[in-house]
């Protein structure tokens, strides 16, 4: 047999490499990443084109060129978050988890590797998509009153912030998939957290809602890429900390379930 004499053991880097190969080798990964880019760039371009022709997109009154460029962030978040969920829930729905955990029986390295590799992928796609959306938008809007430029204050930081938001949302998706072990469950939890819970805040008394809302994952995430902070919104730095807190919480839950439950 031709196994080389070098010591072959499971290491963190090797598990990460395996996770990257898992991701690369599924067609759905590429399709969904493409969709995320399409949403991110497409919605920005459409919003800008509408503004250019004088038809404000619904809800876009008073939008700046920058906010138009990032109009697609929420849609991209759904695509990237769902792909994050799938990355881990499909392990359970297909039975692949048994192969995975037989190879890495300590288990937790799989979660960290999945979260890290997918988090970086979602961040890169998010940041690149946001940059392209911005450049396309600024080209469309050049010469109008909403013209924007990459050298405007805070723009580069904001675009990176959008990437970080999408990357962390992807990690939360991965964690939800491991925690719930079901694609439908994971996607519901993700969509609920990022899209429905903010709407439910209206049901709370105003004082409560004002106190809680900025700390929701979606609002904390939005403050990561906002160019100017609205009333009561968190600063970008505070938003990052809060979003990291939510991500850590989801990962701890996932780690607990992964370590404790039978595969």
């Amino acid at each position: 047999m031709s196994i080389s004499a070098t010591y072959e053991g499971v290491t963190r880097r090797r598990v990460a490499r395996a996770e990257l190969t898992k991701f690369r080798s599924l067609r759905s990964s590429w399709v969904t990443l493409g969709l995320a880019l399409l949403f991110l760039i497409g919605f920005g371009v459409i919003a800008a084109a509408q503004a250019r022709t004088g038809n404000d997109a619904p809800g876009a009154e008073g939008a700046t060129g920058y906010s138009m460029a990032l109009f697609g962030v929420t849609f991209a978040l759904i695509a990237l978050g769902v792909l994050g969920v799938l990355t881990s829930s499909a392990e359970y729905t297909t039975g692949m988890i048994r192969s995975t955990l037989a190879a890495v029986p300590r288990r937790l390295p799989v979660l960290w590797a999945k979260a890290a590799t997918y988090g970086v992928i979602a961040f890169v796609v998010g940041a690149v998509g946001a940059l392209v959306a911005f450049l396309a938008t600024s080209a469309i809007l050049s010469g109008t009153s909403s013209a924007v430029s990459l050298s405007d204050a805070g723009v580069v930081r904001g675009l990176l912030g959008a990437g970080v938001y999408l990357g962390l949302a992807g990690v939360i998706g991965v964690a939800l998939g491991v925690l719930l072990r079901s694609t439908a469950g994971g996607i519901s939890a993700l969509v609920g957290t990022f899209l429905l819970v903010p709407g439910l805040m209206a049901l709370l008394p105003d004082s409560w809602s004002d106190a809680v809302t900025p700390y929701l994952p979606s609002n904390a995430g939005a403050s990561l890429y906002a160019l100017t902070q609205g009333d009561g919104a968190l600063s970008a730095g505070a938003g990052l900390l809060v979003l990291l807190g939510w991500t850590a919480l989801a990962l701890v839950g996932a780690a607990y379930r992964l370590k404790r439950s039978d595969a």
């Binding site: 031709s2 196994i3 395996a18 898992k22 080798s25 599924l26 039975g95 192969s99």
Partner: peptide, 27 residues
């Protein structure tokens, strides 16, 4: 029970497992 993702090729499935241990492509 089944322990393979149906969307992955046999080769990629084995490569994934090989990577965790640094086992070569040749193997």
């Amino acid at each position: 029970a089944k322990a393979v993702h149906p969307g992955r090729t046999a080769y990629d499935h084995l490569m994934v497992l090989a990577h965790t241990h640094g086992i070569s492509r040749h193997r």
